[in-house]
Every structure is written in C-alpha cells, then in structure tokens.
Nucleic acid binder design. Structure first.
Lengths: 226, 226
DNA sequence: GTCTATAATCTGATAGAC
DNA sequence: GTCTATCAGATTATAGAC
C-alpha cells in the first residue's frame, strides 16, 4: 500500500489550496479519534468516569495507551467529548416531540425516538445516567440551560393539551419523567431485562413490539387509548 | 467516661451467661459496621464500585482507613454487604404488590412503596442501578432466581387481570418495567430533577403530590382512571 | 503519527505499636 | 479496638526513540 504523503489516490475530498498530506493526516486523526470516542463511551458506560482506567479504553480501542493521550490530552477532556456526543443525539431525539401539535402523534413520535436512542446508543444512555448519579458535575450547565428551556417549552405544550381537554389533567413533569425513565430503562437496565428474558436480548422484532407497548402505556396514562 | 470492660452501666441487653465485655465489644462492632455500611452506600452510589476508593468511604464514615479494613476485610466484601442490605429493602417493597387482588389497589400500593423506597434510600437505588449498568456481576444470581420468580408470579397476576377484563390488555413486563423505571427515576436522577426544579429538591408535600401523579399515570396506562 | 519506558501519584491492604 | 506507617501494585500522564 502506498503511504507517501503525495499519494492522493485515497484522498477523496482534498480541499483546494490544501496539500494532500495535510488532509491525509487529518483523516488519520479523525478516524482514530472516532475509534477512541467509541471505545471510551463503552468503558465509561460500564464503570463510570472515576472507575474507568485510560488503559482499559486503549485496550478496547486496540491502541497503545500513549496514543490515546496523544489524541486526548487528559481523561477529563476525553470524557467531556464523549458526553458532548451523547448530548447532541439526545437533543436530536428531543426535537421529535414537536412532530405534531396533536398529543397522540407528538407523544408517539417522541417515545419512538427515545426508544430508538436506547436501542442505538445504550452506552451513551448509561454514561448519561452515571454522570447524573454522580451529581452531574459536567452536565450541570447543560441541564440548567438548554434542557431546562426545552422542558419548560414542552411543559407549556402539555398544559395547553390539558386546557384544551385533549388529554387528562396530568402533571407535565411527572409525564416527561415517566417517558424518560421508561425509555431509558431499556438501555440502562438492559442486563436485568436480558436475565429476566431467560438470558436472551430482545431481537429487533421484540423491541419493536415493546416500543408499541410503551407507546400504548404512555398514551393510556394521559387518557388516549391507542 | 468509664471504659473498663466490667462497667455494665450502658449495657442494656446483656445476654444471660455472656460476659458484659463481650456484649460491649459486639455493640461497638455493630455500631461501626452500620456506620461504615451507610458511608459505603453513599460513596458507591456516587462513584460505583470501581470508582470508589476505600479511603473515601473511611473519610465519609469519619474513621481511619485501617479501621474499615478491620471490619470489612476487602472492598469486595463491603460492597456485597451493601448490595445485600439494598436487596432486602427492595424485596420488602416488592411484597406490597400483593396488598390486594384488585389491580387498582395493588398497583397503588406497589407504586407508593417504590416511591417511598426512592425517597428513603436514594443511595441504595443508585448503587443498584450502577451495579446493573456494570453488567450485574454481583446481582446476577439474585436477578436470575429470586427476582425472576417474583416477576413471573406478578406477570401471571397481571395476565389474569387482563383476562378478567379488569385492565386493558398490556404487556406485563412492559408495565412492570415502566413502574420500576419511573419510581426509581426519582432516586437515580434526583440531581437532574432538582436542577429542573430551579435548584430546589422536592419537599415532603411536593413528593407526596408527585407520588399521586405517578399513581394516576400508572393506573391510566392500564385503563384505570383514578 | 506510533509505541516502549518511566516518572509521579494513588489505591487496596497490612503490620505493628498503642 | 484504634491508628500511624508502609508496601506492592495500579493509574495518569509524559518523554523520547523510531
């Protein structure tokens, strides 16, 4: 395999006026950073921030520990970046709440997105949970600003639904927390669910059925039979 | 303060045929073990098993680290005992499911007991959650035996309620997981709830109201308006 | 950009005087 | 039963050859 800096054969998106070897180096960096971030999310999910050794992450990523510290100066910086990635995806799921003005469709879309998040990013969900159980030292800012703003807006929407008689008069916070807790449970407590399911994880079909059941329970909780 | 082994003034329940100094020693041991277990539950809840240093626990308990190792030989043994205490209380809450044969009262009693557990033992709830997120290495036995038996029995009860038309036809596992997740959320994600509540923890009155809301949502989810 | 070797610190656990 | 001192091993992070 040619590896000279001038070989541009594998450089597909070299920017104009930027030497190819720069792009190549950037590609390597991006690939390795992604590798490390994925490994870190997995190990942090398993043992938390304090309980995780950078050496474990390096092993999981298949790299020497020194390389990890080359790409991420400190464990704290790496952890913060892992959290940031999770946060981005969490907010993307959050946006589905506004799919529709009608409670039935809005709740259905939101629960579906949250269940999908739990399915696709179980490690991310657990890192989030552990961070909050540790007192949320790194998430405090986000929780108190972006999340709070989002929650306040959704609380107003739910209150409007109640006013308009579209749903039963429920406490908006209690409803949101129930949705969060229930959907995240399938990621955070996956191991418990597996053991109670005779050692087998839910397959795709089973997970889709379960998602429908969760939607049914949530809709029922506000008086909307599905 | 008299500290001679023969001073029985503070020995209130010395057993017949057992020297007083023995009882005294036993009292000291029990008191210190309780102190250490409480401190350990708190620190394990914060940082998990791997993330917790025995020194932190000693500081929290107000004892030298060596004393901790005198009462609990290893960190693993101490952790196991902490888990056992939580498990006992968890099962006590579980027993309330059988308060009544009618779904409305049974679910109300169970949700109330679980919410009470979250209120009284938030650290225990978090230790439990962290243990499961770590793959439940120490709880695997319990989950696969006692808990599974309990769940299977409750699943049968819920199925009977459905057959008898007392509740909507819901998936029993989905319902149980929703109850667990929602009630435990108030312990595990307390910090998030506080931040979203303008930095104030729910007071006793607010918590009772929230408990009623959770009961209402759960009853509604199975078609039982409260 | 990779990786071995190592410095500096922390952690679990014990020894042994009191 | 208490507590200081300490050891062996692990951990974060860096140095420096390639």
């Amino acid at each position: 395999m040619p590896t000279t800096p001038c070989d541009r054969s594998s450089v597909v998106d070299a920017r104009a006026g930027e030497p190819a070897y720069r792009t190549r180096k950037k590609d390597i960096r991006e690939a390795n950073e992604a590798l490390i971030l994925a490994a870190a999310e997995k190990v942090f999910a398993m043992h938390g921030y304090q309980g995780t050794a950078t050496g474990q992450i390096a092993v999981e990523a298949g790299l020497p520990k020194a390389n990890l510290h080359y790409y991420f100066k400190t464990k704290a910086i790496l952890y913060r970046e892992v959290l940031q990635h999770i946060l981005d995806d969490w907010m993307k799921a959050a946006s589905t709440f506004d799919t529709c003005n009608e409670p039935r469709e809005a709740l259905r879309a939101y629960v579906t997105a949250k269940m999908e998040f739990s399915r696709q990013r179980p490690f991310g969900s657990r890192v989030w949970a552990r961070e909050i159980m540790s007192g949320a030292p790194m998430l405090e800012d986000f929780l108190g600003t972006s999340l709070k703003t989002w929650v306040n807006a959704r609380v107003r929407i739910i209150r409007r639904w109640v006013r308009e008689g579209k749903i039963e008069p429920v406490d908006p916070h209690a409803l949101l927390y129930m949705i969060w807790a229930t959907t995240q449970h399938y990621a955070d407590f996956e191991q418990q669910i597996i053991i109670l399911n005779n050692g087998k994880a839910l397959d795709d079909r089973g997970y889709r059925q379960r998602t429908r059941q969760v939607i049914r329970l949530v809709l029922g909780s506000v008086g909307l039979q599905s």
